[in-house]
Design a protein around this nucleic acid. Sequence first.
DNA 1: TGTACATCAGTGAACGCGCGTTCACTGATGTAC
DNA 2: TGTACATCAGTGAACGCGCGTTCACTGATGTAC
Lengths: 230, 230
Amino acid sequence: MPAAAIRARARAEMISEIKMIARRHLETEGANLSLRAVARDMGMVSSAIYRYFPSRDELLTALIIDGYHALGDAAEAGDAEVTDRADLRGRWLTVCHSIRRWALAHPAEYALLFGSPVPGYAAPQDTTAAAARTPAALIGILTDGFAAGALTDPGPGELPGPVQADVATVRATLFAGLPEALLARGATAWIHCFGAVSFELFGQLNGVIEARKEYFDHQMRQMCDLIGLP
Amino acid sequence: MPAAAIRARARAEMISEIKMIARRHLETEGANLSLRAVARDMGMVSSAIYRYFPSRDELLTALIIDGYHALGDAAEAGDAEVTDRADLRGRWLTVCHSIRRWALAHPAEYALLFGSPVPGYAAPQDTTAAAARTPAALIGILTDGFAAGALTDPGPGELPGPVQADVATVRATLFAGLPEALLARGATAWIHCFGAVSFELFGQLNGVIEARKEYFDHQMRQMCDLIGLP
DNA sequence: TGTACATCAGTGAACGCGCGTTCACTGATGTAC
DNA sequence: TGTACATCAGTGAACGCGCGTTCACTGATGTAC
């Protein structure tokens, strides 16, 4: 291995170690991520971090993109788990549970992606592609189902006009194989998945519902009914 | 007015002015509320705040309780707006839109109530009564509807066992007039309302859906269908 | 009616801590001739 | 093969700022005799 490659590899390892430690700090501190604290845990002086990230915000951005990819990986892995590809409802539920499991295992990262915006931090454009992977994994199930004839198109009548226009744009760029009305139903179900996970994770279920997993499963099944998933 | 009452009134006014300014700071700084900044805006020295709030956390708690009450007020006012009390769907939708409108008008407060938990801050027990007002306003509509015979009980069969136990407890303490299955459907719809508002407010709709209000309305109608609201 | 005392809002200085970012530097490693 | 040079990770000090909380204090106001 040439020297340049060795240096590049060492550099990459440092970057991923910094991110690992930063993720650990997120768990305890929320989005108030401190570069100095990360540097301390790395056994470095705080200015050394600047060899790897030009600013705190860039580090946050990297963590956000990584987070979206990790969640997307979890969602796709969940879908791949289901061997009976024709079992649309099973696939949908498995993906939703994978999302919830990832969120429970990485609450601070989840909050960084889906919680209150970090004050003073503006998410750059580059996060959107990574962010789209999780909903894409869900919508892909519907595309499969529609292609197989297992899902019927309710027709565009159920969407209000301006919403139909927005949905048509999304459909054109990402989900050409799915009728608008089904795409919209899938979006509702995805938003409910997000809502149910956030509701639980952000403490709103405390002292009310103890059977968390069963309750989540129940809600996701209601969403399958709403979509019309067999 | 006796002197003691005058002093008490002045004190109450100071407290509410501090909270007002603190709310204004929340808008720009998120939950990183700074006592010193609030004091500066009050034209006081920072230590003077301690005459009114024993600590920063107590001030945060006061803001949270106020926030829940403000949202509860908005929800109840929305319900009261609908003169045809038998129009259950109209009442439900109006309350949901009131919730969304309040959230859009007070994004930082909404985030404080329903967003990522503030690092290092543990919500005390006293917030729960205030927090319950908004879902109670929604569930009240269903109670009315069931009492009037406009809603039919789907029967407890649709709830998984452990969830049914949790729901039964809630029913017993707060909503004795409503069958468990309807209460659970209402809870799902409330969670979706929260989810849709958070999804929009926390930026997940950016660049995807522009017809925000119509999209929200559409989703809330889907929830009315799920509940079985006429 | 006048005086001693209590109450309490607000002051100002201080403690001890944290932060992001910049900058000139050291010293090890690799490269070119 | 040996030497001058370039690269670059990491150092350490500093800048200029912020924070929550404590504490002894001043000074105005009201109360009791």
